[in-house]
């Protein structure tokens, strides 16, 4: 079998930017992370597809790599899991050997090294968001080539192209937690609505000095709940 790279995807419209190997699971995806007054919020849809088939409708794309450093994964599920596992190992070691929790910068630097040096083998678009005592909340984005961008908020995955306008128009600095959650939810709802590769529930993680708190918003509840409650 001869691999085709840079070919049109199955829909004949979108360019297969991710060069997925055949049979590989794609995190079609809408992911994002934002800064707010007390820290950061990560958000993601829950759809995983192989072609047009939804392989998993309740995927968790928000991955912890240290206590209050998390990432959103997009691209190949296998690649991004492998990269996140390696970074999680390194950050764990860093915390032990230096007697001090790693910062979001440390995590971002490790992610970037892996994504940049192995760019020809990976299809990974990762957003890193974390909170640490020294810097407070921070959001970094690593798109396909392996460059590293510090941002006020970051959006990624196939669904993100549909919400550039929404986010730019609605973004406010220094939002309260409630407003931050509203912003993330509003953006992801639009992405899920217009992107066939995004869908399912909306997951969020809020990272502040008091740790990580998970949120869940379900489509059959009009994405209003259960929030942090148990459904």
């Amino acid at each position: 079998m001869i691999y085709q790279t840079g070919a049109l995807g199955e829909d004949g419209i979108h360019l297969d930017m991710n060069h997925l190997k055949s049979g590989e699971v794609n995190l079609g995806t809408s992911i994002m992370a934002i800064n707010f007054r007390d820290g950061v919020i990560l958000g993601a849809d829950s759809r995983t597809t192989t072609g047009a088939y939804i392989a998993n409708r309740v995927t968790d794309k928000l991955t912890q790599v240290h206590d209050t450093i998390w990432c959103c994964r997009s691209g190949s599920a296998a690649d991004t899991q492998a990269v996140a596992d390696i970074v999680q190992y390194h950050l764990g070691m860093y915390g032990i050997t230096n007697d001090e929790a790693p910062t979001t910068q440390t995590a971002a630097a490790l992610f970037q090294e892996l994504c940049y040096e192995n760019k020809d083998m990976l299809s990974a678009g990762i957003i890193i968001a974390g909170w640490d005592h020294r810097h407070g909340g921070q959001v970094y984005s690593i798109p396909l080539g392996g460059s590293l961008h510090k941002q006020a908020y970051a959006i990624g995955g196939s669904g993100s192209t549909y919400i550039y306008g929404y986010c730019d128009a609605n973004w406010k600095e220094d939002m309260s937690e409630a407003d931050g959650i509203k912003f993330v939810k509003g953006a992801l709802q639009e992405a899920i609505k217009w992107d066939g590769s995004s869908g399912g529930v909306i997951r969020m993680v809020v990272l502040t000095k008091s740790g990580a708190v998970r949120h869940l918003y379900l489509p059959d509840r009009n994405y209003e709940g259960p929030g942090t409650e148990k459904p």
Binding site: M1, I2, Y3, K119, D120, P143, L144, G145, S147
Partner: peptide
């Protein structure tokens, strides 16, 4: 054979 040659040459993304 059918193996593609090993290649490093990529295209720019961002």
């Amino acid at each position: 054979g059918t193996q593609q040659p090993i290649t490093h040459t990529q295209s720019p993304i961002v």
